[in-house]
Design a protein around this nucleic acid. Structure first.
Lengths: 134, 134
DNA sequence: CTGTATGCAAATCATTTGCAGCTTA
DNA sequence: TAAGCTGCAAATGATTTGCATACAG
């Protein structure tokens, strides 16, 4: 079940890619492809929306970016680490923080004891107020 | 911020609606509009996909059905109660169980004490093995 | 130079909508 | 009967893809 090395493909560090990663890194909240495109278009006039989509797909594959479906059907993207974690989303500013898993582990044990459900995977999103907005 | 009573609209119990609800009730796992359509088409030849969508929208509004985005971009729908709860999804059969919130409340307290994050809302999905598939 | 990435425009595909005819209450 | 539904076909809107050209290494 190993990932096949498929003849090493060199990934180029182009200006478009750098710009997209930089934006995601500085924003740290869910952005749609269209939003990213609109934000960078002025600085990079020849940028194409398809390039944004292709770059995001690449980043999600690398684990550098996490994605989720927004309520309106669009996809949102955030910069994040690839370690297992969950998102704490501020309802005031949209800032996305990562939540460590220690508390989650305790919760998992609790769930097993009280509902005898064997927890393998979980997807969690928390909505509340971050330190700055409190 | 109250919901306006908007001149009471009578909701008809049509055969198409009954069929869709019955299917969701008996399956108890995430189904896409297309899947539902394909499953009922043989029995109801004149059924239209748009009717399936319109019915699902109605059910989600009533709280009878819960929806989520599948990985391939389609929307999945499950029958469920309208009380606040979370889903425990069996990775073997896809069966969706509801998880009560007591454990969640304890988790919330834990999160506040250890990461000082004020939890307002949360969206959780658990993946594991249900009693039948264990 | 050579393998990658990009822009552009056209193609997909799930979901939505307008409208005239059909049903339910 | 009237208020709600439904099917049908066409419209929408996000995302994807083919291809010739531009660029990074």
């Amino acid at each position: 079940m190993q990932q096949q090395p498929r003849s090493v493909r060199t990934i180029y560090a182009t200006s478009a890619r750098r710009a997209i990663v930089d934006l995601l890194k500085s924003e740290r909240r869910y952005l749609t492809a269209a939003t990213i495109f609109a934000a960078l278009k002025p600085a990079i006039p020849k940028l194409a929306l398809s390039t944004v989509y292709r770059t995001l797909e690449l980043l999600v594959g690398k684990g550098t970016v996490s994605t989720r479906a927004e309520t309106n059907g669009e996809a949102g993207f955030v910069f994040c680490t690839d370690a297992h974690h969950h998102h704490a989303i501020c309802t005031a500013c949209g800032h996305v923080d990562e939540v460590d898993c220690d508390a989650m582990e305790r919760f998992k044990l609790d769930l097993l004891q009280n509902q005898s459900f064997v927890l393998d995977e979980h997807a969690v999103e928390f909505f509340g107020r971050c330190a700055r907005c409190r």
